[in-house]
Design a protein around this nucleic acid. Structure first.
Lengths: 289, 289
DNA sequence: TTTGAGGGTTAGGTTTTCTAATGCCCAAGA
DNA sequence: TCTTGGGCATTAGAAAACCTAACCCTCAAA
């Protein structure tokens, strides 16, 4: 029985839940199980939805159901919408209401997040901070609902974000060695950041010779420098704490500022309420130190 | 009666419709009217939602209801989500399923859209194209659900989009006058586009003297040039059709390419289904000519 | 003090939805 | 070819959800 034909408004939203599950699973029976209801219930609700919309959403065959073109078109919208609602609801009222999940590479967690937590914890004493280590760049996808701290140029697909700090590279050494840094062996850092060649090109300095140590993570590079292994082209943002506590020292040499930087990003559903905006604001503020 | 306490998942979505209306209108009675139901029904559904969430959403007083902090936090999420669902549903199944609404400034409709429709109409013969003239830049907001053709740098709040063409300015005259354009009076175009001064600065040419005519729209400027009133720093995108049909002619002078351009934008809900993406793709393709 | 607007509460009727049982269809396998 | 079984539709009746009507309460404004 069509409730309204060709009328504006929304269909009964509970039907959409069922449609989403059935479309996603490709089976009424499976959807029924997911709901703890019978297959007949699913069948009826979908029939209702179809007649409300005036369009068939599934093709029924004896071997199962397939989405029609219309169904295929409708599913992503419904899926995304319900997901946003679910995540948003959980963020406000669910378990995660009293915790903040932050995903980042191990070194970022250690060097950007942990040293700067004091200020934030004081403002939000009831909030549990749950960190989630992301071993590889690609696995950020898995921590969808969490905040991310990432290195890059911004503009991540389907996420809002703010720049925490641009990356600034500067020669750094163990304390006491800074003045004579030109005599120290160079610690090479492989990876996405520009190296000594680029530093030399931009600043007009002469490029130091390659040294005996080459690492592939900034954290290791900084540690090597701290241990007196030589001079590293270190990140001011990541080294901030080491510099402050005197474990590292900046060499009297020019800096190289680059377009990449450290970003805090979040799913758009998080930025919707004033309270959550305030929380994000406070958190990014704290991370800027 | 709480269905699930502190459990994940979604509340019965139909309750959210009521919450949204009540929150938006600030009154249970008003929300009930909007639904064609009684105030008691609204009261009960909201009570249900509150107990499902385990949190109060409204403060009841004898003079009416006010959202609590939780309610205030939840409302934007629910509102935006339901709106997206409604618009998306309407785009696929409603009246607007068989039409494409395009909002743009009058001159953009005339000079960018209308001359390029043939190709597109052939691919989508059943689609009604509904244009909506936007008299002033600010009034784009009013045509929320429609496609927009806009001039600018991209990145409009809450809309996806693609660049149709960067703006390229070049001296143009009536046919036959192009060679001797330096002798013609200059038609000044006021507004956001760079003028002759910027053109001269960037290209290294000498800036021509001001002429007797000054207009504030590219459409008028091009028309004046076509009528032989002088030479104009015209937009290649907007003048494309006039140039092709020989009603205008480019002067043998350097072009000025700028960062602004013509964009096609749409609400994110439109880009969700494969079919709609194909449609947008075809449409923007057609507009690129 | 009176009045009226706005909400809450409850009981019971109404509508919607669900379940259980049954039948159909077709693919896969015997 | 025949059998089997998975998957969906359909139906009637039971269950659940929902809504309305009638009532109450409270407060502010007249």
């Amino acid at each position: 029985m069509p409730k309204k034909a060709t009328k504006q408004g929304l269909p009964p939203l509970d039907w959409l839940k069922v449609f989403e599950a059935a479309g996603r699973l490709g089976s009424f029976t499976a959807a029924a199980e997911e709901f703890g209801a019978t297959q007949a219930a699913v069948s009826q609700r979908i029939r209702n939805l179809e007649s409300w919309l005036g369009r068939q959403l599934f093709i029924r065959s004896a071997r199962g159901v397939t989405l029609t073109v219309d169904g295929e078109s409708y599913l992503p919208l419904v899926h995304d919408t319900l997901l946003a609602l679910e995540q948003g609801t959980d963020n406000l009222f669910g378990q995660s209401a009293r915790e903040l999940r932050v995903a980042a590479l191990p070194s970022h967690l250690e060097m950007l997040l942990l040293p700067r937590l004091d200020l934030f914890s004081k403002t939000y004493p009831d909030l549990r901070l749950v960190t989630e280590t992301v071993p590889k760049r690609l696995e950020f996808e898995a921590a969808d609902g969490a905040l991310h701290i990432r290195y890059g140029r911004g503009g991540w697909q389907g996420r809002d974000g703010v720049l925490l700090a641009n990356e600034v590279l500067q020669p750094m050494t163990a304390p006491g060695n800074a003045a004579g840094w030109r005599q120290l062996p160079v610690i090479e850092l492989r990876g996405e950041r520009p190296g000594w060649a680029e530093w030399a090109r931009v600043t007009g300095e002469t490029e130091p010779d390659a040294g005996p140590v080459s690492v592939d993570s900034m954290a290791h590079a900084l540690r090597a420098a701290r241990l007196g292994r030589g001079v590293v082209l270190g990140s001011r943002a990541l080294a901030a704490n080491l510099l402050q506590t005197g474990q590292l020292e900046c060499a009297p040499a020019p800096k190289l500022a680059i377009i990449e930087g450290y970003w805090l990003t979040w799913p758009p559903s998080l930025g919707k309420s004033p309270r959550q905006r305030a929380l994000l604001q406070a958190f990014s503020q704290a991370l800027r130190q």
